[in-house]
Simulated scan of single mutants.
Amino acid sequence: MAGTYTPVTLPFTVDGEKEDLLTLLADQRGLFKVTLRDVTEEQARQRTTVSELTLGGLVKHLATGEQGTLQELVERDDTAEFDMAAAAHAYDLTDDETFAYWVEEYDRAAAALDDYVAKVDSLDELIPQMTAPWQPKREWWTIRKMLLHKLRETAHHSGHADIIREALDGQSTMAALYEGPDPSEWGIE
């Protein structure tokens, strides 16, 4: 599939809608990873805006989101409830965690989720979603909707990460992606 910002080669053969969704999700993850490029452990924990968000916290949140989506797909538990206490540090690195670990875990979790989705028979399969304060009634989503939600969530937090990174050291994700010519030479007005 053409039209990605990052080089994407899926490690399995799929076609049609599944190929499109997994390629676009991989591309968005790739953009997020460009934002994390060359970030140190100290920088990953640094707040650069008025929010509490950090680059390390965002990668941890996205990694646990990938893990959670895979868990929902595999377990298909129609009694599952979101554990608010377990999410207390969902957006920050604790003292015993490292940025490098969560970057690696993000890659592992994303690959495991993609591999699972590549093998499902249909994106129309209905999967029970856990209840949560923001979703108190049980909902059943298609695998397609779950992937679209994952794409939206990744893009949303990629935007946060880009702002944090620009405030940290001036790096813009798109400029870093296209290292070379001055951004003013891109022909974008």
Rank of each mutant, 00 (worst) to 15 (best):
E105K: 15
K33H: 11
A109M: 05
E75H: 12
D38K: 15
L177A: 11
A109S: 15
A175Q: 10
G68I: 03
E52L: 07
T154W: 06
M130F: 15
T40A: 05
L62Y: 12
T154Q: 11
I164Y: 07
T69E: 08
S184G: 01
L93N: 05
A85S: 13
R108K: 15
P181S: 09
D169P: 01
M174V: 15
E75R: 14
D124I: 00
W102N: 02
E19F: 01
E72H: 07
D83C: 06
H89P: 00
R165N: 05
K60M: 03
T142H: 13
H157C: 09
T154R: 04
V8E: 03
E185M: 11
E42S: 10
K18Y: 05
D124N: 08
E19Y: 04
Y116V: 00
E72K: 13
T98L: 06
G56C: 01
H156T: 08
E166G: 02
G170H: 12
P183Q: 13
A175E: 10
T49W: 11
W102V: 03
E179S: 11
D27E: 02
H160W: 08
E52C: 01
T23N: 06
Y116R: 12
V117S: 05
E153F: 14
G180N: 08
A88H: 10
A112R: 15
D78W: 10
G56K: 00
D92K: 14
L151T: 03
K18E: 00
V34H: 05
I143N: 10
R165I: 03
I163A: 14
L177F: 08
L10I: 01
E81Q: 13
V14E: 02
L58P: 05
T40V: 04
E72T: 10
L93M: 09
E97C: 03
E179K: 12
H61W: 08
M146L: 15
L31T: 06
D38T: 10
A111I: 00
E17T: 09
D78L: 02
A167N: 15
L177E: 06
A109V: 02
L10E: 02
L22C: 01
E72I: 03
Q28W: 08
